[in-house]
Every structure is written in structure tokens, then in C-alpha cells.
């Protein structure tokens, strides 16, 4: 069953342009100039029930605008959107009973009150049966391990504790889809790890569809099987996370530690020396230029090898490459449009 279906979804904003300074302000009073910005330029997407999808892209790519259209916050300028069979901008209230949404920078919890008070309010908002609510709350408290600070005012919680409580509050009504917009923003490594584990557990136990946007590639690697990348309001990649790696991983990072010291002029043919130490080196190898086994043979014949590691480059680097490639295509396209005929 499809949880989300988008067809050619577009959103344009009209922005007022103002020249700098006081004169610019005065001029904009009697002769305002407007720019039309296409934040989302025709996204088509289908998400199955139970999928855990990463929706990523650089700042200003259109991620949050898309989520806001899916949750009924914004009206699309063109195109169609259906979430769990509802049209979000027409059936916002009906849809809201079946979805949960967390915006990392827009907390739902009441700041001066303990999380338990917001939970009680949410039980009223979603009109939950009180006994069922208590049962559900206890389950989430256990799953997210928030029992120790359930009665502490939110303002006194750490960011990680607060975010776990945010997730609990948005799952009290057992939604079918959870929209997570930057849930790990500002969290330390441990808090991120705890949160990812909790999200994974809830996804698996409840067959919850999760639509995750994040700037943290670690979230994508740890959680998502499918990744959709958008840039300039358009989908530039939509496939399995493993395919993303395969398609864009044209090189490996090879770490080697020798049994003896290596000279200062140590170099490697057809590969890039990233780092050289007294006993070893880190090498970046483009596998389309030189096979891995060839390099390893060369290293082993150079000197006795004590340790050897072969790694894929970090996902972050892969995504950066995609963005950069897309950016240059975008710029070329713009330049071509600006050249007079």
C-alpha cells in the first residue's frame, strides 16, 4: 500500500526585492519589485507503507517545503499530493490524526512544563481513550527510555532528552507516518546514537513509515534503505542507499601499516597519497584507473605489511560529489540560458 504519492508537486513563493539602504526602502514603498522563487519544481515520488526513507539535500533545496506540503502546512502551487489517501492541504485535520511530525527547530513540548503535561494535552488533542493513552505512553516511555525525566520541566532537559520526548509526543496517537525534519540537529554523538536506535526500533516494531530529512549523513547510513536527494527543488537521485554508494563510490580509501619505516619520498603510482606517516600511509584509489588487488600486491612487495584496511569513502563525501556535480550542471544550464541568441 502506498503511504505517499506525489505527482509533479510544485511550490513557488513571491519574494519582495529591496535595494540596500534607506533609499531602497523608500523606493520599495511606491515601486515594489517582486521575485518569484520556485522552491519545489515538480517532485514526483511514491513511498510504500513501512518504508524508512531519507529525503536529503543542501540548505534551500526544498526539503522542508516538501514536508510542509505533505503535512498540510503549505498549499502547493501546482501538482498533486496524497498522503494515506488524504489530500493534505484540503484534508489537513483528518490527515493529522494519522501522521506525526517533528521539526527539529520547532519543538512541540511546552517549554516550562514537564513532558508528561504535553503528553496529556496531546491525548486531548487526538481524543485518545485515557486507558489506551496510558498504555501507549508507558510503551513509548519504555521504548525511548525517558522515564527518568518525564516529570522534569522541558527547559531543564538536554537536547537529546528533549528530542526523545518530542518523538514520544508525536507517536502517542500511533500514527502511520512520521515526518522527521532534522531530528538529530545539535545532538552529540551519544544522543544521536540513542535516537537512531529508538527510531529504528519503533520503525521495525510498528511498521511505521518514516520520512526523514537530515543534514547528517550518519542518520541516512544508520537508518535508511532508500534515499532521495533533492537539489534546487528537483529530485536528482532516488534509489537504495546501497545503490547510491555503488554508483558514486568509484574509489576506495586504503590504509596500510608496514613492518618497517618508510622513506619520506614514499609514493604510489596511479593513486593519491592522502597521508604519510613514519610506518604507514593512507591512499585514495580510483578503482577505474587501477584495480585494488594490483595496489595491494604492490604494497606487499614494497615491504612487509602489518595491517591493511580498505574502506569506502564516507557517505558525506559521496553526497557532496553529487551536489557539486549537480551544481555545475545547474550553473552551465543557467549560463546557456543567459547567452544571447
Amino acid at each position: 500500500m502506498q503511504a505517499v504519492r506525489l505527482h509533479n508537486l510544485k511550490k513557488t513563493f513571491k519574494l519582495k526585492r529591496k535595494a540596500p539602504g534607506l533609499m531602497g526602502s523608500i523606493r520599495s514603498l511606491y515601486k515594489p519589485e517582486w521575485n518569484t522563487v520556485e522552491a519545489v519544481k515538480g517532485i514526483s515520488l511514491e513511498i510504500e507503507q513501512g518504508e524508512l526513507l531519507a529525503f536529503i539535500g543542501p540548505n534551500g533545496a526544498g526539503k522542508s517545503t516538501t514536508i510542509k506540503m505533505l503535512t498540510g502546512i503549505l498549499h502547493p502551487s501546482e501538482g498533486e499530493a496524497e498522503v494515506l489517501g488524504y489530500v493534505p492541504y484540503k484534508q489537513r485535520q483528518q490527515l493529522a490524526y494519522h501522521i506525526g511530525a517533528i521539526f527539529g527547530q520547532k519543538p512541540q513540548l511546552w517549554y516550562h512544563l514537564p513532558p508528561i503535561d504535553t503528553f496529556e494535552l496531546f491525548a486531548h488533542i487526538y481524543e485518545l481513550d485515557y486507558t489506551a493513552y496510558q498504555k501507549r505512553r508507558d510503551f513509548l516511555v519504555e521504548a525511548l527510555q525517558i522515564q527518568d525525566f518525564l516529570e522534569t520541566p522541558v527547559r531543564k532537559l538536554s537536547l537529546g532528552q528533549r528530542m526523545r520526548c518530542e518523538i514520544a509526543s508525536s507517536l502517542l496517537h500511533a500514527p502511520k507516518i512520521l515526518f522527521l525534519d532534522e531530528p538529530t540537529i545539535g545532538l552529540d554523538v551519544i544522543a544521536k546514537q540513542h535516537l537512531r536506535e529508538a527510531i529504528k526500533t519503533l520503525h521495525e516494531e510498528e511498521n511505521l513509515t518514516i520520512f526523514l530529512t537530515s543534514h547528517d549523513v550518519g542518520d541516512v547510513e544508520a537508518l535508511c534503505k532508500r534515499v532521495v536527494i533533492i537539489n534546487h527543488g528537483q529530485v536528482i537521485f532516488d534509489d537504495k542507499t546501497s545503490a547510491l554508494k555503488r554508483q558514486y563510490l568509484t574509489h576506495k580509501i586504503i590504509g596500510v601499516r608496514f613492518g618497517r619505516e618508510i622513506p619520506e619520498d614514499f609514493s604510489v603510482r596511479d593513486a593519491e597519497l592522502l597521508k604519510r606517516g613514519t610506518w604507514g600511509a593512507k591512499i585514495r584509489l580510483d578503482t577505474s584507473i587501477r584495480p585494488v588487488d594490483d595496489l595491494i600486491m604492490a604494497l606487499m612487495s614494497y615491504a612487509p605489511v602489518v595491517d591493511l584496511t580498505i574502506e569506502d569513502p564516507p557517505m558525506e563525501e559521496v553526497i557532496r560529489e553529487i551536489y557539486t556535480a549537480q551544481e555545475s550542471i545547474h550553473l552551465n544550464h543557467k549560463e546557456q540560458q543567459e547567452v544571447p541568441a
Binding site: 510542509k68 503535512t71 498540510g72 502546512i73 489537513r92 485535520q93 483528518q94 493529522a96 490524526y97 501522521i99 511530525a101 521539526f103 520547532k106 512541540q108 488533542i125 487526538y126
Partner: peptide, 12 residues
């Protein structure tokens, strides 16, 4: 732009 919270909940 601070109405997002209210718009994601099933209440007027």
C-alpha cells in the same frame, strides 16, 4: 511563520 505547530495537529 510560527503556525506550523498548530497546522500539524488535528484541531482548528
Amino acid at each position: 511563520g510560527r503556525l506550523d505547530y498548530y497546522l500539524t495537529l488535528p484541531r482548528p
